[in-house]
Simulated assay, not measured.
Amino acid sequence: MTEIDLEKYTYHLPDERIARFPVEPRDVSKLLVYKQSEIKEDKFYRLVGYLPKDAFLVFNNTKVIPARLFFQKDSGALIEIFLLNPVEPSSVISQVMETTQSCTWVCMIGNKKRLKGKLQGKHTIHETDDLVLEAELIDSEKNHVRFSWNNATLTFAEIVKYFGQIPLPPYLKRQTEEKDYETYQTVYSKNNGAVAAPTAGLHFTEKVLFDFEEHDINYDFITLHVGAGTFQPIKVQNVVEHQMHSEQIVFEKAFVERLLKYHTFVIPVGTTSMRSLESLYWFGVKLLQGDETFFIEKLFPYQDKQAVSIEASLQATLQYMNSKNIEQLVGETEIFIFPGYQFRVCKGIITNFHQPDSTLILLVAAFVGDDWRKIYDFALKNNFRFLSYGDSSLLIP
């Protein structure tokens, strides 16, 4: 594997260009349109006018959960437990969010040295009813925390709404506000499990989606539960050595069938949808090689392989689902998309403006080539807002 020098993919982002809050309404944010190497500026609510007639858009319908849980000990010490990945009763996030018993998660733990014994939090639902949530560190090395609660009618998804806080990206440098519980979710969010929003989708409104219907633009949904690793900066000079995080992805069989039908011009909404789609392709390749493991390793796409068409990959996936009699496919991916990657599914992308020295900048550079710098220079010179609550772009190389 050739070295990829991080210094080639950095730029200066002034702090004042980071959007601390979203614009309202969502769809009046700026839209940078990059097509055939030309760049222009418009408003997001006019997006449909720039989409090819045969475009098939893919949205990530994950829902951000209040993953920051705070417990105060009798001593006054504050312990923060940040949910990462479930391990019991299942590793499938959607199943664990619906459990009404107890569950165990891999967590990040703030003030961990003070965590001894069980932690307990209380929340009054009715005047006479106290909801009690207990947290116990059962494996200190792996940071496994078991949660249990005293109301068997409530799911864990409902529990974290009472005790948790929506985790905003650290670069916003502010506390979560009440409004964020609405604005840091997409209007089509559905499946609980993300600790960060798929922010390219934050610009969409019901009106924009209605425009798709009016113009016969096809679209569908997948689920990738965005993990905390999405904010992990690259700290190595040769980016190939960066340790990529793994995230869970979910595909319905009906989606795979639609993708096979509309695969000619696929435009993912966001980097999470792009990583999901490309990972789905590589799962099909694995199946054709006789490997049924849906875990896409970081550098799997860069190993020498015979070319496989997207049709052949998707057909193999559908055949696998039919043989197993399953309607839903759950996998894991740590795919690392950087310059040199050959895209197999995606022909365009709708995405925000990302941090310098990040895996997401590398993904954009892999997709549009050296023009990534021209795009970002234009955005900086024309007062575009950056990062999660910032403006949007449509990139069609």
Rank of each mutant, 00 (worst) to 15 (best):
E127D: 10
K305C: 12
I350K: 00
L31A: 11
E332S: 14
I18Y: 06
K118D: 11
L78Y: 09
S309Q: 12
E158N: 09
L31C: 06
F221R: 06
W282K: 05
S29M: 00
N60C: 05
G331H: 05
E214L: 15
F70L: 14
A228K: 02
K40V: 13
N60F: 03
K190S: 15
L318N: 08
W105L: 04
G369T: 11
D371K: 04
K112T: 04
L380I: 12
T153D: 14
T230P: 13
Y341V: 09
E241I: 00
F300Q: 13
E24R: 13
D15F: 11
K374F: 04
S358F: 10
A194V: 01
K142N: 12
P86F: 01
L387R: 01
S148K: 14
A67Q: 02
P169Y: 03
F56K: 00
E292H: 11
H225W: 10
F21G: 03
I222D: 00
H203K: 12
K305F: 10
E252H: 13
S273T: 06
T155L: 07
L6A: 05
Q95H: 14
C103A: 04
L224C: 06
K305Q: 15
Q306D: 12
M1H: 09
K347M: 02
F255Y: 09
H203M: 09
V132D: 08
E327D: 15
I361V: 12
A307H: 15
G117P: 09
M244E: 05
K30W: 11
A135P: 04
N352S: 13
I217C: 04
A366D: 01
L172C: 09
V345Y: 01
T100M: 09
V48Y: 11
I138M: 13
E178Y: 11
Y281S: 05
H12F: 10
A77N: 15
P52V: 02
P198W: 03
P66Y: 04
P25R: 07
F156M: 08
N383M: 10
L137D: 01
F294K: 00
H215M: 14
K43N: 09
L287I: 13
Q36S: 15
E327L: 07
L395V: 06
R275H: 07
K190T: 14
L387H: 02
S189A: 15
P169N: 09
N151E: 11
I79A: 04
K118Q: 14
T153C: 10
S392P: 03
R275C: 07
V58K: 03
K116S: 15
T2P: 02
N218D: 14
E206H: 12
G117R: 08
P86M: 01
E241L: 13
D377I: 07
N150K: 11
I222V: 14
A197C: 10
N150C: 12
D370A: 15
N238P: 00
F367H: 01
T223C: 10
A312N: 11
L363I: 09
G290W: 08
V239R: 01
P89D: 10
N325W: 08
G340C: 04
V236R: 07
F300M: 12
Y34C: 02
F384T: 04
E158Y: 03
A194G: 03
V256R: 03
K253R: 15
T183V: 14
L387A: 08
L78W: 05
T351A: 02
L69A: 01
T205F: 03
V236K: 13
P86R: 05
L288R: 08
E332W: 10
G227I: 03
